[in-house]
Design a protein around this nucleic acid. Sequence first.
DNA 1: CGTCTAGCTTGACAGACATCAAAACAGCCG
DNA 2: CGGCTGTTTTGATGTCTGTCAAGCTAGACG
Lengths: 120, 120
Amino acid sequence: MSKQADPDVAACCAPIAARPLGPDQAAVIAPLFKALGDPIRLRLMSMIASVPEICVCDLTPAFDLSGPTISHHLKVLREAGLVDADRRGTWVWYRVRPEALRQLGALLEITAAAGEGRPA
Amino acid sequence: MSKQADPDVAACCAPIAARPLGPDQAAVIAPLFKALGDPIRLRLMSMIASVPEICVCDLTPAFDLSGPTISHHLKVLREAGLVDADRRGTWVWYRVRPEALRQLGALLEITAAAGEGRPA
DNA sequence: CGTCTAGCTTGACAGACATCAAAACAGCCG
DNA sequence: CGGCTGTTTTGATGTCTGTCAAGCTAGACG
């Protein structure tokens, strides 16, 4: 376990609207959004984020999908660095990585510089 | 122009971590994240969000991609409801839809309920 | 009307992705 | 050890996506 890509958090902090993202920063951040860009993964993410931690055995039955498919989606979230998992005895427990969530949230903040002050 | 899907903003407001997203809400929101899940689109989005509005003719030369490809990505952003566009004379101008950005930002906020209070 | 420029649409194609079945792996318990 | 449950990996398959070339539309300008 515990094998998730560390997405070089330092590369991005300021909101998307503060100044244009460079190609490198975009290449680092886009995969995080992509990981959330699937309804199943978004629900998984929100289920995991709603509690301190949660067992795969509680996630799988919430979907009309095979076990391997859920496992695949969890792996995507893991490799994006959005969640963390470890096995405890028979079961595997997932929890969210708050930094990653916070980082994305900060990116979407709308600052004074943004398209807010537009007339129409 | 001005043909973007209106993603039923009412369906979601509270952070992802507040409570699990229902399948319907996830189906509405995931496409927004998906639209941001491509490096090119993320850069386009950030370029558009950095100024009140911007002409396609200023976006295209920033990338090593054909015009049609940029146009395709802009269409994806448009149909996701993240940006808005209209033609003014010869040029087409894009601007961000602040509500959409704000909505996504709110979703990623980490509230007291989240995985924060975990011991290790 | 004719033509030029800016941008979009269509068609085609290679690569990526979601899904499942089958097999493998990790712990428990008899 | 041998079987049992829970989870991940592998392989195969159909669908989706990013890209470009070629063709098309909208407006400006004679």
